[in-house]
């Protein structure tokens, strides 16, 4: 078979494990895993851009476009097949990113961040005015069907969970492959020194554009999966606070490994749940302190914990 690297093996092996966990774990935990896979994909999209030195403070734009595209396909065209919904969400995101990319590819650093934020907030403003789409309250999405099969009750929950796990992890594995490809390494070069990159005969603009479109497509996928898990979409998906969270998750998790944002999203979600449980009135403070401590003691993100262990293990085996 293809030469899979360790991360890819882990991801592919993770699919059956996650699905199995869906039957073993209590349902509420499975729920958080499911929504975390959706939002985790967006954090992943933020992370691959971050590797190229681009911090998107507006990734919620494509998260929202994906969710709304799928939702509107269901609401107005009566499409309920999950495969079609996923494809619609991704295609619409890709198309929007293709257009917006011509503008955004000229920007770097904070300007890229703020311009992406501006675009996402313009969509927020538009959606907040559209009463057909429920304005800020958004609208509900019916349960999906699978090639004509329309499960109910617990079967529907498991089916949707499985249908979330497979595309999410496959997508992560593909992204890993992309990052290891020449195109992916151009990202690193972009961050390090754009001018040298150009001297080498590659167009930095084109590289950014492609990266941006890939990130948008992944976010669109995340948006569809998240919206289906929730059964509801609203403009909050493209608010800057949502986009901000994606950035924070990817920094907290660390940009070292593709699995980190997926895992980090879930961990952060669970931390939040327990912070709310422990202190419903001041949970934000707890979250803030945990974030600060993470940054101080784990500057390379949560993932560095695992890496460090790995490194020391390898050291001992070498000896």
């Amino acid at each position: 078979m293809m030469n899979l690297d360790r991360t890819e093996k882990l991801l592919l092996a993770g699919i059956p494990i996650l699905i199995l966990l869906g039957f073993v774990l209590p349902e509420w935990v499975v729920n958080y895993i499911q929504v975390s896979l959706g939002t985790g994909l967006v954090a992943l999209a933020v992370m691959i851009q971050m590797r190229a030195g681009l911090v998107s403070f507006g990734q919620g734009l494509y998260f929202c476009i994906g969710g709304y595209a799928a939702g509107m396909a269901g609401k107005f065209m009566g499409v309920s097949d999950i495969f079609i919904l996923l494809i619609i969400g991704m295609l619409v995101s890709l198309f929007m990113a293709f257009i917006a990319g011509f503008l955004l590819r000229r920007y770097r650093e904070i300007f890229f961040a703020m311009l992406s934020l501006a675009l996402s907030m313009i969509l927020y403003g538009l959606l907040s005015k559209l009463e057909v789409l429920g304005s800020t309250d958004g609208f509900n999405i019916p349960s999906p069907t699978y090639l004509g099969w329309a499960p109910e009750g617990d079967t529907a929950k498991h089916a949707l969970y499985i249908a979330t796990c497979i595309p999410a992890l496959l997508c992560a594995a593909l992204l890993n492959r992309y990052l290891r490809s020449p195109m992916g390494f151009i990202g690193e070069a972009l961050r390090e020194n754009e001018i040298r990159l150009e001297y080498l005969g590659t167009s930095a603009h084109r590289a950014v554009h492609i990266k941006y479109m890939i990130a948008a497509t992944v976010s669109g996928l995340g948006g569809v999966l998240w919206a289906l898990a929730l059964g509801h979409v609203d403009p909050e998906m493209t608010n800057w606070t949502t986009s901000g969270q994606f950035v924070f998750i990817s920094i907290l998790s660390g940009v070292g490994n593709i699995v980190a944002p997926l895992f980090g999203t879930f961990i952060l979600e669970i931390v939040r749940v327990y912070a709310v449980e422990a202190s419903p009135n001041t949970w934000q403070m707890i979250l803030g302190v945990i974030m600060l401590l993470t940054i101080i003691f784990l500057p390379k993100g949560l993932w560095s914990l695992i890496q460090r262990k790995k490194a020391s293990a390898e050291e001992t085996t070498q000896k």
Binding site: E27, W28, N31, Y32, V35, A229, E236, V273, V276, W283
Partner: peptide
């Protein structure tokens, strides 16, 4: 706290 992005998951957690 209702101020959460995962209201549905939070609700299910309460119930389950």
């Amino acid at each position: 706290d209702e101020n959460s992005k995962q209201k549905v998951a939070d609700y299910k957690k309460l119930v389950q």
